[in-house]
Design a protein around this nucleic acid. Sequence first.
DNA 1: CCGCTGATAATCT
DNA 2: GATTATCAGCGGA
Length: 182
Amino acid sequence: MVELARRLIGTTFLVDGVGGVVVETEAYRADEPASHSHRGPRPRNAAMFGPAGRLYVYRSYGLHWCVNIVGGDAPGSAVLLRALAPTTGCEAMAVRRGLADPRRLCSGPGKLAAALGITGERDGAPVDGEGVALIDREADPAVVAGPRIGITKAADLPWRFGLAGSRYLSRPFPRHDTGVPA
DNA sequence: CCGCTGATAATCT
DNA sequence: GATTATCAGCGGA
């Protein structure tokens, strides 16, 4: 699953022609306690135990939608889409989000879902099905990794991935000191 | 640029 | 009854 999370960085994710480049993801697996799939199949997480390449959409904190892509390495694995660099349909995103600042449009899982108009209706939908598209990248981008955000269990696993140097992350990655002063 | 707080409901104990 | 894969708004530095 970790591999898919890495590989999704740099791909383009669109819903009804609106979206952008994936710049931040997190991997989740059934064998690890932070995952919704950890305690087995349930109504909410059914999509996580279904076919690979589908969406798992759930409601977070009772009010935000979050979007995952289901993996195929093992049952119950998925990659949370945490941030996009907006490229297409910025006007529609600005309207849905009620702001125009591209850096704040999709810089978080809930914001991303809101900007692309994703709700629970898309739960279980194929990533290349009706209105949804995932376009692979040309070359391998520089990817950075760090601990996942907003969880209390298994918080030490470095399964959050980001496009190096991107200005559209939900939060910066922990920086190693380069040792080279400016 | 922080850090804190309330909102809000499904899921879990 | 507690917890939660979050966010916007606010006040302070």
